[in-house]
């Protein structure tokens, strides 16, 4: 007669082997997730906020055919107006204390004389140190302006306003 008392020990041994193999598999297969799944949500939020502020600044008053505030700011180089409007709109909150959002803005234009893309500074709420974790918000604006300055070429031009937005 064949004794079957050892069958149970065999099954136990197989199960233990599986657990050890699985453990080894998990250890070897483990990936280091350097950034969690919700890390970029702040960035997304900040980018949308910057975009919304630029959209508001580029909205004509009451749907008239007048020029939008953003267009006038670029055409007339009113850096202070840009800073005031951007800081006020970006930092406005429903609670009493203001947010701590800062920005650095410039706009890019196509230099038709040299055929290169050049930038003009608009304004910034403080100087960039390089340590900011900034996101970029952009907005196309059509302006009637002499670009580059001194070229005597005044036409409707498309410029790209780029704002780096970060929270201190």
């Amino acid at each position: 007669m064949v004794g079957e008392g050892a069958q149970l020990y065999t099954i136990e041994g197989v199960a233990a082997a599986m657990i050890m193999l699985l453990t080894a598999y998990f250890v070897v297969n483990a990936t280091a997730v350097y950034t969690g799944g919700d890390t970029h949500i702040n960035d997304m939020q900040l980018e949308i906020l910057g975009k919304d502020v630029l959209d508001m600044m580029d909205t004509r008053p009451n749907g008239t055919v007048e020029k939008s505030p953003l267009r006038l700011i670029i055409e007339e180089d009113r850096a202070d107006d840009f800073r005031t409007a951007f800081v006020a709109m970006a930092n406005n909150r429903t609670v009493a204390d203001a947010d701590r959002i800062n920005f650095a803005a410039q706009y890019f234009y196509n230099n038709r004389v040299t055929g290169t893309i050049e930038s003009n500074p608009l304004s910034s709420s403080r100087d960039l140190t390089g340590g900011e974790h900034a996101v970029r918000a952009t907005k196309w604006v059509i302006v009637t302006k002499e670009l580059p300055a001194g070229s005597g070429f005044v036409k409707d031009r498309a410029v790209l306003v780029e704002v780096l937005v970060w929270r201190d």
């Binding site: 890019f108 234009y109 196509n110 038709r112 893309i117 196309w140 059509i142 036409k155 409707d156 031009r157 498309a158 410029v159 790209l160």
Partner: peptide, 10 residues
């Protein structure tokens, strides 16, 4: 002119 600006800046 505007289209050319958009194309090259983009």
């Amino acid at each position: 002119i505007v289209v050319e600006d958009i194309t090259s800046i983009a």
